[in-house]
Computed example of a mutant assay.
Amino acid sequence: MKNSKKVIYLSLVICISMYIIEQILNVNYFVKSTCKIVLFTLIPYLYIKIVKKKNIKNSLHLGKFQLKRLKLGLILGFCSFTIVIIGYIIFAKYIDTQNLVDQLNKIKVNKNNFIYIGLYIIFVNSFLEEFFFRGFIFLNIYEEGNKYMAYIYSSALFALYHMGMIKSWFNIYLIILCIISLMVIGIVFNYLNTKSKNFINSWIVHILADISIILIGFKILWN
């Protein structure tokens, strides 16, 4: 339990710091991404190395990586891709696309750099979030025996972390729907990782879901 509390306190500080950087300081995308890389990977790495006194590979069970255990991640990944696309088709008329474009322009995201930022989101940002929310938070708390806390806390923090980003995109009802959906996604991702003991499966799902979101972004920006 002692380790779980440390993980909870540290992850809260990290997420609050990211909220301040993104929403209050309102820095550009490059600065925000650099801060996220440091906060979501370096600090957890130092915690695992110094506090837990473990090798990062052993702590996250990356040495047990097996290709055959990725089947479920790939299946759910393609399902999530399809669901996001269908969801966009259904709810597109409720999205304030001009406001979304304006918000992207504020952080210097536009047609000229969207493809590079899209690749970053798909491969790097998805890794950062899976390493942090699933590899660092969920697995650390789960393996200490606090299974319900691990599921609820990590998925709730994952959902709330994204609220700052999407709060200006939709109306209040769609925001609530997004928060609930993100919590459910977080729980599913966590379950996937209990099967492999690492975050690779959920990372695959995250990548495929992000691909669908980036494709929607292309459609909105080039409309």
Rank of each mutant, 00 (worst) to 15 (best):
I175A: 02
I166D: 06
E129V: 08
S126M: 03
Y173K: 06
Y120P: 07
K106R: 14
F127V: 12
I122S: 10
Y173H: 11
G63A: 08
S168I: 14
K108T: 13
L157P: 05
L25Y: 10
I211M: 14
I48V: 12
I200W: 01
I85W: 03
S181P: 00
V7C: 00
I207Q: 06
Y9A: 10
A92G: 10
K2V: 04
I21H: 08
S202H: 00
L182E: 02
E130D: 11
G77Y: 00
S196M: 09
N28G: 10
G118F: 11
C79K: 10
I20D: 14
F138T: 01
F136Q: 01
I213A: 08
Y88V: 06
I180C: 13
G87L: 09
Q98V: 12
L46T: 10
K36N: 06
Q23H: 13
I107P: 04
R69I: 08
N28P: 08
F132Y: 08
F30G: 10
K68V: 06
D102P: 09
Y45H: 08
L160K: 03
T82G: 04
I141R: 02
M18D: 05
K147D: 02
K93D: 13
S181F: 07
L72E: 07
V31M: 13
I204S: 00
I117Y: 09
T41W: 11
V101G: 08
K71I: 15
L208N: 03
L221W: 11
L60V: 03
L174S: 08
I86V: 15
N113W: 14
G63D: 10
S212V: 08
V188Q: 00
F30K: 10
G63P: 01
Q103N: 13
T97W: 03
G186H: 01
C15W: 00
W169T: 12
L119G: 11
Y161C: 09
N193M: 04
L174A: 12
K36G: 12
I43G: 03
S11V: 02
I24E: 08
S202V: 02
I24L: 15
K93H: 15
Y47R: 04
H61S: 13
K106W: 14
I152S: 05
I172G: 12
L139T: 04
K53N: 13
N190Q: 04
N146M: 13
I75H: 01
S155F: 02
Y29S: 07
G217I: 14
K5M: 12
I115A: 11
I211E: 04
L70G: 00
I176M: 12
A209D: 08
V31S: 07
I86H: 03
G186Y: 01
I117P: 02
Y173M: 07
C178S: 11
Y148Q: 03
Y142P: 03
Y191R: 14
